[in-house]
Design a protein around this nucleic acid. Structure first.
Lengths: 200, 200
DNA sequence: GTCTATATATCGATAGAC
DNA sequence: GTCTATCGATATATAGAC
C-alpha cells in the first residue's frame, strides 16, 4: 500500500517531468503523462489534484538546475576569476545532462499568466558574484568591467546554446552526442574569453 | 470592398502578432485574437483558413528579426572586429524594439511537433562570420579563437537577456524602460569583451 | 488504489442568415 | 464581407464501481 503508493507516485513524477520538459505547460497533455506512466488519467488526479498542481511540483524541482546552489563555491576563498571558471564548468556540465531545462524554465517564466513563478527564483547569485568581483577589483586583480553585465554574459553564453539547440544542431549537422561534445568544448572557450576580459 | 478587405486583414495580422508573441502558439487563443482585432472568430477563419495558417504567416514575418539580414554589413569590407561590433549594436537595438521576438522564435523552434520550422531559418550567418574571421586571422589581425563558438557567444550575449527578461527585470527591479536602458548600455560592454578577446 | 465511464469546459472550425 | 449559432473534437476533472 504505502509501497505501491510511492511507487506509483514516482512513476507519475518521472512521466510528468519528461512530458512537461518536452512540451511545456500549455502543450503538455495529462493523457500523455498517464500513458507514459502506464496508468490512467483518473489516477493522475487522485495523486495530484490538478494539472497546475502537478506542474508546479515539477517546476520547483527543476528550478534548482537552472539556478544551481553555489554556496560551497563561494566559501572556498577562490578569486573571482577562479570562481567563475568553476561555475562555467559546473553549469555547462549540469545543463549537458539536462538540455531541456533552460527552455523549460524560461518558457515558464515568460508565461503571460502566472507571473508568480518569478517569485520562486533564487535571485542572490548575481549579488554574490558582484561582491566577489569588487573584492578582487579593489586590489587590482581584475580589469574594470560591469560585474552584473559580466555575470549575465557568462550565464548567457552557457545557457543560450541549449535554448537554441535545435538551430545549432541543424547548422552544424550535429546529433545529440555531437552537440554535447560541442558544449563540452565550449567550457574552455568561455573560460578563455573570461581570462582575456579580466586580463588574467 | 477591397479597401475593407485589406483593412480587416491588417487588423487581424496586428492582433495575431501581438497575441502569438505574448502567448506562443499553444497558449494563444483565436478568441483573443478576434477580440483584439475587434471582430469575431468566424471572420478570422474567413481570412486565414486555420490557426496553423495564421501562425505560420506571423512566424515567417518575425523570423527575420531574430536572424536579420546582414548582407550590406559584410559587403563594406570591414574587419571581423568592426563587423561584429556593428552587428552587436544593430542586433540589440533591433531586439530592444522587439523584446518578445527571441522567446517567440525559440519556443516555436523547440516545439516537439512541427520540427519543420527549423527549415525556415537562414543558416548562412555563422559561415559568413567564420570566413571573415579566418581572413583577418591569416594576416595576424586577431587572436586565435574558435570562430563558430565566438559567434554563438556574441549572439547568446545579445539575445539571451531578452529571453531571461522577466528574471532580469525582477532582480534589478527594472521596468520596461529601465530594461531597455540596461540593454542599450550592454552594447558597449559586449563590444569591449570582443576587443579584449580578439586583442584589438 | 485503480479502474471505466462521464461530466464539464473550451477550443478550433463551420453552417447559414444577412 | 460580417455576423450569430453551433458543431465536433479534445482537454481537464470527477463520479462511482471494484
Amino acid at each position: 500500500m504505502k509501497q505501491q503508493n510511492s511507487q506509483t507516485e514516482e512513476k507519475i513524477l518521472e512521466a510528468a517531468e519528461q512530458i512537461f520538459l518536452r512540451d511545456g505547460y500549455g502543450d503538455a497533455r495529462m493523457q500523455d503523462i498517464a500513458d507514459l506512466a502506464g496508468i490512467n488519467k483518473a489516477l493522475l488526479h487522485y495523486y495530484f489534484r490538478s494539472k497546475d498542481n502537478l506542474f508546479e511540483y515539477i517546476f520547483e524541482k527543476k528550478i534548482s538546475v537552472m539556478f544551481p546552489k553555489m554556496e560551497e563555491m563561494f566559501n572556498q576563498n577562490l578569486s573571482f576569476y577562479e570562481t567563475t571558471c568553476a561555475f562555467i564548468e559546473k553549469y555547462i556540465t549540469l545543463l549537458n545532462d539536462n538540455p531541456y531545462i533552460p527552455m523549460f524554465v524560461m518558457s515558464t517564466i515568460n508565461r503571460a499568466d502566472r507571473q508568480d513563478f518569478i517569485k520562486k527564483l533564487p535571485i542572490g547569485l548575481i549579488q554574490k558574484f558582484a561582491e566577489l568581483y569588487f573584492k578582487d577589483f579593489s586590489v587590482g586583480k581584475v580589469r574594470e568591467v560591469n560585474p552584473a553585465q559580466l555575470i549575465i554574459s557568462v550565464m548567457s553564453m552557457c545557457a543560450f546554446p541549449f535554448i537554441a539547440r535545435p538551430v545549432i544542431k541543424e547548422i552544424t549537422k550535429a546529433d545529440d552526442e555531437q552537440f554535447k561534445a560541442i558544449m563540452q568544448f565550449r567550457i574552455s572557450e568561455i573560460q578563455l574569453y573570461l581570462k582575456y576580459i579580466l586580463n588574467q
